[in-house]
């Protein structure tokens, strides 16, 4: 069987995902996450009497904690399979990628397992974020002067 025919058969038998449904679910779940973040910020400012920027740091930590906890309990993979980008794009996706890497390599030991593999998935976010932020920062310093 030549490769072209093989490719056609693969394309025919790949299950078609309903893109409209996926998009709607991602929009609603992602939107609810955003509104939940805003709600947390307002609750923290009201309860502790802190500024909005401090409350937003607390909010990010809360979401990271929830993402880690639900991943460790084993629920989060099912949530992600349902909501897809609705939970990957918010900061919970970052927490989820670190937590699942830590859990997966735990049996290989603390240093060689968790220590060396925790950033296996999440490292790309930090590396590309830092490099692009450095480039953009330099451009802005040169063009606008700060």
């Amino acid at each position: 069987m030549d490769t072209k025919r093989y490719k056609e058969i693969v394309d025919e038998n790949t299950p078609k995902e309903n893109r409209l449904y996926n998009g709607m679910i991602a929009f609603i779940i992602g939107g609810l996450m955003g509104a939940f973040g805003e709600l947390l910020i307002q609750i923290y400012t009201y309860l502790f009497g802190i500024s909005t920027s401090e409350a937003s740091v607390f909010m990010i930590m809360t979401l990271v904690f929830l993402g880690c906890l639900f991943t460790a309990l084993g629920f989060f993979d099912k949530f992600v399979a349902f909501a897809k980008a609705g939970l990957i794009i918010p900061i919970t996706g970052f927490a989820h990628s670190m937590m699942s890497a830590a859990l997966e390599y735990r049996q290989e030991g603390l240093v060689t397992g968790i220590g060396s593999n925790m950033f296996k998935l999440a490292g790309t976010v930090i590396i590309f974020g830092v490099v692009s932020a450095y480039v953009v920062g330099l451009i802005r310093l040169i063009v606008l002067g700060g």
Binding site: E17, R19, N22, G23, I25, A26, F27, I28, I29, G30, G31, L32, M33, G34, A35, G37, E38, L39, K84, A85, G86, I88, I89, P90
Partner: peptide, 21 residues
């Protein structure tokens, strides 16, 4: 501001889902 949050975060996730699909 809750509606704005919902719309903005939802739109970002929708764009992500379109790229993913």
């Amino acid at each position: 501001i809750f509606l704005n949050s919902f719309l903005f975060c939802g739109t970002i996730c929708l764009i992500g889902q379109i790229i993913l699909d």
